[in-house]
């Protein structure tokens, strides 16, 4: 039990996907300038990550390892993610209009979000079981959401600040991310899985 909790906590804060592994930097710098839309983006990523984790685990354990095909890992992972995102989009569109409106526009972008592929590769690398994998996916997604929402909050304040011309846009975003990464470095003292 304690192990599961550790995996979850370390995925959310200690090994934060954005600030420690530099994953999902593009949406992190590009999309987040409004807290609400970045929260929706984060939710969409968390949703897809939590779903891909068990699917990738099942496929890797029962197909790739069983039939000795580990060299097909990257190709299968990316196809699984692309197919799952597509299915999810169709499913949400049919079942819930409200959810489609909040998550819909972010879903197609998620296929090329490196955070999802990384979490799929990572759980195979760490040899997590299916429950650990799902929790890891959920935790990483929440960590991404946390980082992107904090960033959006800071960017909202930044609208009123006097940023030097050359630093506007991406450079100031990167500098803020650097300071956030330093702050999150403080979590390293926590025990991690």
């Amino acid at each position: 039990m304690g192990n599961l909790f550790l995996i979850f906590i370390s995925a959310v804060v200690v090994n934060n996907f954005v600030l420690k592994y530099f994953l999902g930097i593009c949406p992190f710098l590009g999309v987040s300038s409004e807290v609400k839309s970045s929260l929706n983006m984060g939710m969409a990523v968390t949703f897809v990550m939590t779903l891909t984790a068990p699917v990738v685990w099942l496929l890797s354990t029962f197909v790739l390892i069983k039939f000795k095909l580990p060299f097909l890992e990257y190709v299968t992972d990316i196809i699984v993610i692309a197919a799952l995102v597509q299915l999810l989009e169709m499913f949400i569109k049919k079942t819930s209009r409200g959810l489609y409106r909040t998550l819909g526009i972010y879903l197609p972008l998620i296929t090329t979000n490196c955070a999802i592929l990384f979490s799929a590769l990572f759980l195979v690398l760490r040899q997590y079981n299916i429950i650990q994998s799902t929790l890891f996916g959920l935790g990483s997604g929440l960590g991404f959401t946390l980082a992107i929402v904090i960033m959006a909050g800071i960017k909202e304040e930044l609208e009123f600040a006097d940023v030097p011309e050359a630093l506007k846009g991406a450079p100031i975003g990167l500098l803020i991310a650097g300071l956030m990464a330093l702050a999150f470095y403080g979590f390293v003292g926590l025990p991690s899985a």
Binding site: L19, L29, V31, A170, A177, G178
Partner: peptide, 30 residues
Amino acid sequence: LPAGAFLTLGTMIGISNFFTGKMANRSACH
């Protein structure tokens, strides 16, 4: 540390913007 990567790249893009007088485009991929 990870923080150093963000700070260095941010500074480098800032300096290159300063000398070329052109703003970096927003990321085109996402």
